[in-house]
């Protein structure tokens, strides 16, 4: 049966589950040039929460997800930064498939094309449950498929990825990610390649899953709207820097950073009067190999002052009434 949902999700953070401190990632782009993909990323992911990471192309959001999973490409230079899980510093490679799991954007490319779904799902669990027998793992896989809404799971396990639709493949990916009972599930644009009604299903699935498996989700997306509907906390990324970070209500009720405000203004609304010219952010992203001094958004910012072009703002709290709301701006609105 289809159902309508209204979600009122209140989370109690008991101490951050995951902490990123001072993460810097560069890419060697040939001929001695270095492109800065991420700079001084400080991030907290609370227990049992969904954190949305919003950014457009070139923001570095996928790089951040990859860094967390230890999946950075070979020309990446992980210069500084610490990843802490429950207070202890960790190497992401050690946690893959155990505490950390990931759902990718394009399930066709993320699933092995010539292995059956069942085999892949069993394999995915081995790192986490080395002692369990294949039969047991297979049963867990079937149960999880049922939980993510795939009918007739026993038979589905025999299918190959190309025999399933995009929505189903994404459910399989989510099932695989949940099977290892991760502390953190990283979803990198999981619905971007899907149709709207399927996207709604998957978003709902993620929301329910979080309630059930008791972990946290890092939801990476370019859609501020989707993040507003799904996430408890929002982090806005621009050209490799965090420009604003807050819980979802606070961010949308008083967005402080000009870029965040522009993004919100750019989202077309169904009830806008027709004929209204649409808002855009003028200019282009800076060249990551040749970043301007000062605030990285200054060249495109309507409120930029001389200080903005000179000095790089640091993430700082806005203060009362929302202490958890931080922004990196000299002139927060």
């Amino acid at each position: 049966m289809s159902r309508t949902t209204a979600d009122h999700d209140d989370t109690q953070a008991t101490g951050p589950l995951v902490q990123l401190r001072g993460l810097d990632v560069d890419f060697a782009v040939g001929r001695g040039r270095v492109a800065s993909a991420l700079r001084r990323i400080d991030l907290d992911i609370a227990q049992n929460s969904i954190v949305g990471l919003v950014g457009e192309s070139g923001s570095g959001k996928s790089t951040l997800a990859q860094a967390l999973m230890g999946l950075l490409p070979s020309n990446a230079v992980f210069r500084n930064g610490e990843i802490r899980l429950r207070g202890r510093t960790v190497e992401p490679e050690a946690l893959r498939g155990r505490s950390l799991s990931m759902v990718f954007q394009d399930p066709m490319n993320a699933l092995h094309p010539v292995m059956r779904i069942g085999t892949q799902m069993i394999d995915a669990q081995r790192a986490r449950f080395p002692k369990l027998r294949s039969g047991v793992l297979r049963q867990r896989a079937a149960d999880m498929l049922r939980q993510v809404g795939i009918a007739d799971p026993e038979n589905r396990l025999e299918a190959y990825p190309h025999q399933l639709s995009g929505g189903m493949r994404q459910r399989v990916m989510i099932a695989m990610a949940l099977l290892v009972e991760p502390d953190l599930l990283i979803a990198d644009e999981p619905t971007t390649a899907l149709d709207a009604t399927i996207e709604a299903q998957i978003a709902e699935l993620l929301r329910l899953s979080k309630q059930q498996f008791n972990g946290s989700i890092l939801f990476v997306s370019h859609s501020l709207a989707l993040v507003s509907e799904l996430c408890d906390h929002v982090v806005v990324l621009y050209a490799g820097t965090i420009v604003e970070r807050a819980d979802v209500r606070s961010l949308f009720s008083h967005p402080a950073h000009p870029y965040t405000r522009a993004l919100i203004a750019c989202e077309p609304r169904h009830d806008d009067p027709p004929g209204l010219p649409m808002v855009s952010v003028p200019g282009d992203l800076p060249d990551p190999a040749a970043l301007p001094p000062g605030c990285v958004f200054a060249p495109r910012c309507a409120h930029a002052s001389e200080r903005c072009h000179r000095e790089n703002p640091v993430l700082a709290p806005l203060g009362a009434p929302s202490p958890g709301h931080l922004t990196a701006c000299w002139h927060p609105q």
Partner: peptide, 12 residues
Amino acid sequence: PTIDPERRKQRV
């Protein structure tokens, strides 16, 4: 998706 932090929207 629309900007809906209060989750007021009833999604079908």
